[in-house]
């Protein structure tokens, strides 16, 4: 059965509610994008990072990685890969990622940064 909402006098009020609802939804969607709102390659690879790094900008001791630009991220990952920069966890993670995957991840995280800044 289809219930009807046809109270004419309330139609404009309803539109306002819809508009507010959509606005609220947009805010929540933007917030959610810091996690994995899509399943593209960057988002999939970033799920490796979020086991230790939060992607919403919160930094409670493990450095935030959304503040890094693409080039810097790639340089840091290369330093972890060669063990020039010491961290056994990041050494293992960097070694497991191909150069192409690091590039994709760098682009994804940089985009996340921009999105976070817009908020």
């Amino acid at each position: 059965m289809t219930a009807k909402y046809c109270r004419g006098a309330n139609a404009s009020g309803m539109r306002q509610i819809i508009a507010l609802s959509i606005a609220a939804s947009l805010i929540i969607l933007v917030a959610d994008r810091s996690l994995a709102a899509d399943n593209g390659r960057g988002a999939q690879l970033a799920t490796v990072c979020v086991s230790c790094h939060r992607l919403d900008g919160s930094d409670k001791g493990i450095p935030s990685i959304i503040g890094l630009d693409e080039e810097k991220f790639a340089r840091v990952m290369e330093a972890f890969k060669s063990d020039e920069r010491s961290s056994q966890i990041m050494h293992a993670v960097a070694l497991s990622l191909s150069d192409e995957e690091i590039t994709i991840l760098a682009q994804y995280l940089a985009a996340q940064r921009k999105e976070t800044k817009r908020r």
């Binding site: 909402y5 046809c6 309803m14 609802s21 959509i22 939804s25 947009l26 969607l29």
Partner: peptide, 23 residues
């Protein structure tokens, strides 16, 4: 005047609605 049916307007209550529409 626009008449919304619950069927058409089914996802009004949930803010996850837009996520569904946009995906």
């Amino acid at each position: 005047m626009t008449c919304w049916t619950r069927r058409k307007f089914g996802c009004f209550a949930g803010v996850t609605c837009l996520a569904s529409l946009s995906s």
